[in-house]
């Protein structure tokens, strides 16, 4: 499998990364180099192996249904580039 400039553009958009037009092709080459190297995994016999998402084999710990957080609006908004009347303010989004 290898990526071309078009795929790079698509992936960059999915990841919301601006990539200059002239960088698309070189980036594709770089990614192909890495992906090619990664593909040596195809040599491994993984028949019947369960994918391992975590090294831990216990059930996820749980909280009780208790309200013990929130009411910290100043902290929540403190680092925001722009706020108004307790809201985060962001560029216009379309529905």
């Amino acid at each position: 499998m290898s990526v071309d400039a078009k795929t790079v553009r698509k992936i960059a958009h999915l990841a919301r990364l601006e990539v200059a037009e002239e960088r698309l092709a070189p980036l594709a080459d770089e990614l192909n180099g890495i992906l090619h190297w990664i593909e040596q995994l195809n040599e491994v016999d993984v028949e019947g192996v369960a994918p391992m998402a975590s090294v831990e084999d216990v059930s996820t710990p749980v909280r009780q249904d208790i309200v013990n957080d929130g009411n910290i609006r100043d902290d929540v908004l403190a680092n925001a580039p722009r706020t108004e009347e307790g809201f985060f303010v962001m560029p216009k989004a379309v529905e």
């Binding site: 919301r16 601006e18 929540v76 680092n79 925001a80 216009k92």
Partner: peptide, 21 residues
């Protein structure tokens, strides 16, 4: 949006892409 650097673009998507880029 909530912290860190924002680089304004023409719209939201462009702002995301420019900020992250």
């Amino acid at each position: 949006m909530r912290y860190g650097v924002r680089v304004d673009g023409a719209d939201l998507t462009e702002t995301y892409e420019k900020s992250r880029g």
